[in-house]
Nucleic acid binder design. Structure first.
Lengths: 195, 195
DNA sequence: ATCAGAAATGTAATAACATAACATTTCGAT
DNA sequence: ATCGAAATGTTATGTTATTACATTTCTGAT
């Protein structure tokens, strides 16, 4: 299976396969593409996320224990929202059922370290595409295929920050989630016009 | 008790009492201020919200039944997030306990009619400040006092819409929630500088 | 190397949030 | 007045999350 990355999270127009195919190798400050599941080597995607997590935790002096690593790995199995109880079921075996606090504590750690994002509107979680730096992101959640794309447009987060501040509000966290249809799930002939 | 309104949802600087005190009477397309609880006639705030709801439902040919009206009234008791189970408890008496579906159905109706907003990050609900027109709003949620201020900045919602579209994404709904501290809960001396 | 405190994990119970399925009542148009 | 649709009532259960406390594992100081 092949793997392609996009090199810029802000392409001028809609992402599509031809754009992605021409792109170059990703670095840790770039994002991964979920735009074309067909040309997406997800094994490499998972490996990359776990390696990056190991590196960051070592650097920060926090412990990515086997349990936490396992939870992160499960979350990265695909680019769809993962529920806490999905994780409980996936981690449980005939011998041993994992209890809710176990999973919720691992999720709490991963959230604190910025390795995952919580999707408030779905009570779910998704791997963070660029965990090296704390950031405010925008999540595009497809109601067709369930895939989530993470955007990190500083212009948007700064505009929201400024707007809140102009009302005297001090911002801790932004939650920006967009529900709709991703390019692969928009019915043919109804794509957004090029701009 | 007196009541004041602000006439513009986009003041140049942070809202404060002097701005509010000088403002003029609100119309249905304007928003209410939650900025100064001291000069806020909340009884009038509730009455206005209910009148507006009656008017809109009549106009739309949908039924604001006693139950639905009662739920809306409870949600408008203050400008804080209200939980579904709060409503269940508040509507229940010794004689009669209201069951969850009753409240959830009323909430569903009020959401459909745009009379309330759901706050995804809190599993809660808040009255909509300008229900006459469907809109994408931004909610400022104070972790100090729990009050929620609704913004409706078209520049922000349009920027997010454009960004999503530039990724080929078709937007159904935007969820924009900002957690932080409102002007009254920011510790003295730590206010945001004037811009 | 060992041991004390801290961190992480295990376990049981329960709280908090939400919906499915079906029965009954109320409303409104004819 | 009656019929069908809408609204509400009721029971049960599904889903998400936390509290409280016990046990184990890790780490650093000695």
């Amino acid at each position: 299976m092949l793997c392609y990355y996009i090199s810029d999270i802000n392409p001028a127009g809609p992402a599509n396969a031809s754009v992605i195919l021409g792109a170059k190798r990703m670095t840790t400050t770039q994002t991964m593409s979920t735009s074309d599941p067909l040309t997406h080597d997800h094994d490499q995607c998972i490996a990359r996320a776990l390696d990056e997590a190991e590196r960051l935790c070592a650097q920060r002096g926090v412990r990515l224990t086997p349990l936490r690593r396992r939870v992160l790995e499960e979350i990265w199995q695909h680019h769809e929202v993962v529920k806490a109880y999905d994780l409980i079921h996936r981690l449980s075996t005939e011998d041993h059922t994992v209890k809710p606090p176990t999973v919720y504590r691992a999720l709490e750690f991963l959230l604190e370290q910025g390795l995952i994002h919580r999707i408030e509107s779905q009570n779910g979680y998704i791997g963070c595409s660029h965990p090296a730096l704390a950031h405010q992101c925008q999540l595009l959640i497809c109601r067709g295929c369930g895939q989530v794309e993470e955007l990190d447009d500083p212009a948007l987060s700064e505009a929201l920050q400024r707007e809140a501040e102009s009302h005297g509000f001090r911002v801790d966290q932004q939650i920006v989630e967009v529900r709709g249809l991703c390019p692969h799930c928009v019915p043919a002939g109804e794509e957004a016009p090029a701009r």
